Computed example of a mutant assay.
Amino acid sequence: MFTPASARAASAYRTLSVQGGVEGATPHQLIVLLFDGLLASIVQARGALARGDIAGKGRLVGRAVRLVQEGLKDGLNEEEGGELAANLGRLYDYCSDRLTYANLHNDDAALAEVAALIQPVAQAWKEMDVKSVPGPGGLHA
């Protein structure tokens, strides 16, 4: 479902200063870190919006969109991941659209919506036992 240690996702991760290191991370760990960075960016963007820091909110929402598109979505492999990967791709597109809307309209509710949509997916990734995932169609650990 995800490409092996996607160079593009790793690059997005490094570029956007997500917490922790990416060196030596497995593809599964990288996805978990991308989710963590995405959720942290949304929380920080909501805080910036509440403080009236519109420039800061814009930077943080921009980071969140890049994590979704360049990290999570670009890491999908629809050939191996099938319907699940396609559904995740649609979710990521929707989240990117809502983040962009939130940025343009200073809409805290849209930011909260994206966090609520991503949180269960992020939690599922954290709980996933990579060793039990089959090779073809699963993660390439």
Results as ranks from 00 to 15, higher is better:
6 S>W: 10
119 Q>P: 04
47 G>C: 10
85 A>K: 01
98 R>V: 04
81 G>C: 02
54 I>Q: 09
23 E>L: 05
133 V>E: 07
1 M>P: 04
125 W>L: 06
110 A>R: 06
57 K>N: 04
11 S>H: 13
31 I>Q: 11
46 R>P: 12
22 V>K: 04
49 L>C: 08
109 A>Q: 15
21 G>Y: 09
105 H>N: 07
69 Q>F: 08
37 G>C: 12
67 L>C: 01
9 A>K: 10
84 L>V: 14
68 V>S: 09
69 Q>W: 10
99 L>I: 12
39 L>E: 11
8 R>N: 12
78 E>L: 14
85 A>I: 02
98 R>G: 06
89 G>V: 08
133 V>I: 02
37 G>L: 14
5 A>P: 01
82 G>V: 00
117 L>R: 09
139 L>W: 10
117 L>S: 09
91 L>M: 10
81 G>E: 04
30 L>K: 06
79 E>P: 00
98 R>C: 04
132 S>E: 11
47 G>S: 13
73 K>Q: 15
29 Q>R: 12
108 D>S: 15
78 E>T: 12
90 R>F: 14
54 I>D: 14
103 N>I: 00
127 E>H: 07
52 G>N: 01
32 V>R: 07
37 G>N: 10
134 P>D: 05
19 Q>D: 14
67 L>Y: 00
62 G>H: 07
52 G>T: 00
40 A>S: 14
89 G>W: 07
112 A>H: 03
78 E>S: 13
48 A>Y: 00
15 T>S: 13
49 L>Q: 04
11 S>K: 15
133 V>Y: 02
32 V>F: 02
86 A>H: 07
11 S>L: 08
68 V>N: 08
31 I>M: 13
37 G>R: 05
101 Y>D: 12
132 S>Q: 10
98 R>P: 01
111 L>F: 03
125 W>Y: 15
127 E>M: 14
